[in-house]
Design a protein around this nucleic acid. Structure first.
Lengths: 343, 343
DNA sequence: GGTGCCTCCGTAAACGTTTACGAAAATTCG
DNA sequence: CGAATTTTCGTAAACGTTTACGGAGGCACC
């Protein structure tokens, strides 16, 4: 593999000059710069990242920490790949590379982070699946590693975050169902550790009481990772003695299970139970059409990337970059799963 | 951040000894080794990867090149994350890290690989979405970069590969449908560039003729990326004048679309059209149950990882490691979507 | 006590860059 | 034409490791 030394020898100039030429430094004659660039092209020279990292203390890599939620059905997949794509599209402009890292389950995730960070594998990290109390945030903040979280947390160390606008969704969903005559509106929530759960629950409670409805915690239903995609959930709901007439989902998998479960019981979504979900494009494959909230995930990725850039001083010119803490807006896709309540 | 120099000063010994102690070299007294390890623990020392990479010429990273198939519905997602998980579980034992890299669309993927490889970002690569003629394979082989492909290709440079046993699936599927009285069996295939398409087509033709059925290329149906998950496909199939009584899918998304399309037409999968698919756990959410072929994706990931290890001489002891070229076996999950043909 | 052999450790070079510094060359100016 | 200034370039240090090499001690042996 050709090194900068080879290049310099081949051109008969010093490696210092070659380096400056390649990195667009000022003090190099235009003519020689051209010669260097041309030779680099011909010899297929690409700077070795290790050498460069060592010298300038930055690797050009941004790590996205993905937890292998060992809980049955993988939730995020369809979600994440679009986000990654958006992130990379921004990073490319800065010569950065996105590195998706599979972190072990949460108990060992600290040791994992320790290694990543200690080895200086990445210049910055993005955390996902943020928990209400998230030690990873303290860990990174203590070590002054630039990072951004996808999802909020109560562990607040002044870090930038991006999140979906769950409050907006819940408010809209509750309003919408209320306007259509529903009074017993259930909410399906993920496991307790995730901060997402509390955000949605608070928003739900707030909107319910604002509408003058009684808050009933029996209508707050926990999704069971062991439940195969939510089939059992359907039975659970339909067999409650004061069963809800509508249910709001916080993910895009469980609506499928619920549809399936209802079908098994001979019931129809939208007629026997109104359903609202947060969904990806997959939702369009449900019949009847699922009314759901959708996000521009590619944009979300771009926003995350921007927040990361702001955390890396050598990549932008802002003296005091803004602290990015945004909830990205949703779009409502109207379907037939949340029809008017008759009776 | 503490470097090995800090550690050495703190202990009052040379950095050479510290390095040897940490790397389990022979010529260091057990007592000092212990002291070093203890101090490293206390000071939170983790070796800087850039320094190490520079010296030994390897980064400890394995890149998985994921193409952002810009074609409508993302196919692979649910699939890949499990594979990643399997890979990482092996890599962890070797101190390797999986780095998922989002490669741009295929036209520019060469320039992308050029950068990755030139910068020495990864010790080895894994290619996915292999095409029948895949220039990436030539590129990597020419540069002697260790790599493994997930999926086969006609571009054969002696590289190891892992793949799903599509031949086995097709043979089993055709047999199964034939035994149940089906004579007009359609096959749904992905876009032409992918090698997968040809593997399946060949296997299909072979099995069809072996059973004495006529090969009819009108029964080979191309899935349209623009078609929203296969809904239009349903209409297309049901409106053929010599329409098939069964269809085999090569992916896990289109069955959803087909179910949806059939439902829209008031038809029932398994009664009006037999359906076989290759699927992930999501399939259990279809009603009636989709009969499908399933793979142990975590294992697949582990196999890929093993093949990668064999390509990195410093990580194993084999003089001549075996060339891994395997099709991982499938499991049939029986459902109700491929019932007996009546009439 | 000299010789030889281990065991353990320190020294220093090397990996490929970038960059501060100063020297050389080119240009401008009086 | 010489001096002052600017432009351009070469030198060398530094980043954090690993590792080949050799030296210093300890011990056993004759």
């Amino acid at each position: 593999m050709t090194s900068i030394k080879d290049l310099a020898q081949h051109l008969g100039i010093s490696i210092g000059t070659v380096s400056r030429a390649l990195n667009d430094k000022l003090d190099v004659k235009p003519a020689t710069r051209e010669r260097v660039l041309k030779a680099a092209q011909e010899l297929g020279y690409v700077p070795n990242q290790a050498g460069r990292s060592l010298r300038q203390g930055s690797t050009g890599l941004v790590g996205f920490v993905l937890e292998t939620s060992s809980e049955g059905m993988m939730q995020g997949d369809l979600f994440f790949i679009r986000v990654f794509d958006g992130m990379q599209s921004v990073f490319s402009e800065y010569g950065l590379h996105l590195m998706v890292m599979m972190s072990p389950s949460s108990e060992k995730s600290d040791a994992y982070l320790e290694k990543i960070v200690g080895r200086r594998l990445a210049d910055a990290l993005v955390l996902s699946s943020t928990r209400r109390v998230d030690p990873r945030i303290d860990f990174l903040a203590d070590r002054k590693i630039p990072f951004v979280t996808l999802g909020r947390s109560q562990t607040d160390r002044g870090q930038p975050w991006l999140d979906l606008d769950f409050e907006g969704i819940i408010a809209d969903a509750v309003d919408r169902l209320h306007a259509r005559g529903h009074r017993r509106i259930a909410l399906s929530l993920p496991r307790p550790a995730l901060n997402l759960r509390y955000v949605m629950l608070d928003a739900y409670r707030e909107q319910i009481t604002r509408l003058g409805l009684p808050f009933n915690d029996r209508l707050v239903i926990e999704t069971d990772p062991g439940d195969n995609g939510g089939v059992a959930l359907a039975h659970h709901i339909m067999e409650m003695d004061d069963r809800p007439s509508a249910v709001i989902f916080s993910d895009h998998i469980h609506p499928f299970g619920l549809y399936r479960g209802l079908a098994d019981m001979g019931m129809t979504p939208g007629r026997d139970l109104a359903i609202l979900g947060i969904a990806t494009r997959l939702a369009s494959l449900l019949s009847p059409n699922l009314t759901h909230y959708r996000f521009h995930l590619h944009d979300l990725g771009r926003r995350i990337a921007q927040a990361v850039i702001y955390g890396l001083p050598h990549l932008h010119k802002e003296k005091k970059p803004p602290l990015i803490r945004e909830r990205v807006p949703f779009t409502l896709i109207e379907g037939d799963s949340d029809a008017e309540m008759k009776g």
